[in-house]
Amino acid sequence: MIRRLRRLPGYVFLSVFALFSVFPLYFMVVSATNSSADVLDSRLLPGTQLLENFAKLFAEQDVVSAMVNSFLIAVGTTVLSLLLCSIAGYGFEVFHSRAKDAVLAILLLAMMIPFAATMIPLFELFANAGLVNSLIAVIVPTIATPFLILLFRQATRSFPHEIIEAARIDGVSEVGIFARIYMPTMRSTYAAAAVITFMTAWNNFLWPRVILINNDVQTMPLLISNLSAGYVTDYGVLMLAVLLASLPTMVIFLVLQRAFAAGITGAIK
């Protein structure tokens, strides 16, 4: 009983924070079922306009193709980014040397420059390569991120070097150690990195809107931006679009969350 009471402040704190976190999401879901006027009136109860909002949204915008494009971009970015950055992060830590540390420090500088400043040179680069409007041009600039490299490098610090040494003595190749021992062991790091990368890629806005000129390669954030660009905004429809755009990232998180949970349970055992 005393143990329980001792946890009470923790539960109260968690409840307050969870409420703070979830309320705006609740508002988003409820608003998707309301008319524009009700949303502006901040109505907090579910309404009956969901189907109308659906019909209007799908009649006005090519939601399916935007979803597919967003999905291709987010999945492509995540897979390539995790692969590339974990290899590099592993390399920086396991083959640690002064020279490599210096390289890492320099690479980290790249993370510090605001994207708006490098956008125009990048656009020139991709335009010269004839890649305007291609999903490749959306993905490539975002896959090698110093941030993920740093994440994997930091995480690798807690990866026991003895295992690597042992594997080397057993004659496992360096690539083999990485692919067969490191990757499966670090799955919780991969899961966290995947969630983060997927979300960033899914919500990426500034670069896609510049490099994707045709509408048939539009993404969800661009579609949402178009919905609120007119003289008259239908807020119910807008909130529905926003809800649809948020679902995949939430689902990805919920799915990969199990990878975390498994890791935690395993550690407690």
Binding site: L72, V75, G76, V79, L80, L82, L83, G130, L131, V132, N133, S134, L135, I136, A137, I139, A179, I213, N214, D216, V217
Partner: peptide, 24 residues
């Protein structure tokens, strides 16, 4: 996961060719 990682860039580059061929 790794297999997808290798296959996907290929697929994307094919996609890129087809859309780059389109008239802007």
């Amino acid at each position: 996961f790794v297999a997808v990682g290798v296959a996907l860039p290929l697929a994307l580059s094919l996609g890129a060719c087809s859309s780059a061929g389109g008239d802007s």
